[in-house]
C-alpha cells in the first residue's frame, strides 16, 4: 500500500529517504552492467502486476509480488522497486517525490529479508518444501510491508494508531492471497523454467 503525500512527518520521511538511498546505492554498486536489462524488465513486470486486480471476496486487490521480486532479484530488488514506484508516481500520481523513499523501503526491505530467509528454500530439491517456503515468502513479504506502513504512520503521530491497526487488518487477507500466488508462481517457474531460479 502506498502512503500518500503530505501525511508522514519530516523525521519519518527523512529516515525513509536516507535508508532507501543507502540501500539503492549499495545495490547499484553490486549490480553488474549485464544485469541492467534483467532488473529493469522485472521492474516493469512489478509495475504491470500492480495493475492486475484479483477478486477477493466482494472486493478486489491488486498484486504486490514483492516476495517474488526479492526471491528473483535479491539486493537489486531495491532499485527495481524504486524505479517502478517512481514511474507510478509520475504516470498515475500514486505516491510522489517526498514519500518515494518511505514507500520504496516499505516494499523493498521485506523483499530482501525474504530473499535471505527463503532464497535457498524455494530452490530446494524437495518440491513440497519449496512450495511451502514460497508461500511463506509471499506471505511474510506482504506482512512485513503492512507492519512497516503501520509503523511509519505511528511514528508520525500517536493519533494514527487506529489507522495503523486498520492498515494491518486490511493486509491480512492480502498476505494469504500473495502467499498462495507466490507458491503457485514459484511452482510454475520450477517446472517451466528452472534456470530463472538457478535450480
Amino acid at each position: 500500500m502506498h502512503i500518500s503525500e503530505g501525511i508522514l512527518s519530516a523525521p519519518v520521511l527523512v529516515t525513509g529517504a536516507g535508508l532507501t538511498a543507502m540501500a539503492v546505492g549499495y545495490s547499484l554498486k553490486k549490480m553488474e552492467h549485464k544485469e541492467v536489462p534483467k532488473v529493469a524488465i522485472l521492474s516493469s513486470v512489478f509495475f504491470v502486476a500492480s495493475l492486475i486486480h484479483v477478486p477477493l471476496g466482494p472486493s478486489s486487490v491488486h498484486l504486490i509480488l514483492n516476495g517474488i521480486m526479492g526471491a528473483l532479484l535479491g539486493w537489486t530488488a531495491f532499485p527495481a522497486i524504486l524505479v517502478a514506484l517512481a514511474l507510478q508516481g509520475v504516470l498515475f500520481q500514486f505516491g510522489g517525490v517526498t514519500t518515494l523513499g518511505v514507500n520504496t523501503l516499505n516494499m523493498a526491505l521485506p523483499a530482501i529479508i525474504c530473499f535471505y530467509l527463503f532464497n535457498k528454500g524455494i530452490r530446494s530439491e524437495n518440491n513440497l518444501i519449496a512450495l511451502i517456503l514460497a508461500f511463506a515468502c509471499g506471505f511474510l513479504a506482504v506482512m512485513l510491508s503492512g507492519i512497516m506502513v503501520a509503523a511509519a504512520l505511528v511514528f508520525t503521530g500517536e493519533p494514527f494508531m487506529q489507522v495503523a491497526k486498520l492498515v494491518i487488518i486490511a493486509h491480512l487477507p492480502v498476505m494469504i492471497l500473495e502467499g498462495v500466488l507466490t507458491a503457485f508462481c514459484i511452482g510454475f517457474l520450477r517446472k517451466v523454467r528452472p534456470e530463472i531460479l538457478n535450480v
Binding site: 524488465i41 516493469s44 513486470v45 500466488l181
Partner: peptide, 18 residues
Amino acid sequence: HTYKTYAYLVGMMLVRSY
C-alpha cells in the same frame, strides 16, 4: 483456481520477460 490461473499468468510473464 482463479489464484492458480493468475499465478501462472504472472509466471508466464516472468518467463517471457526473462
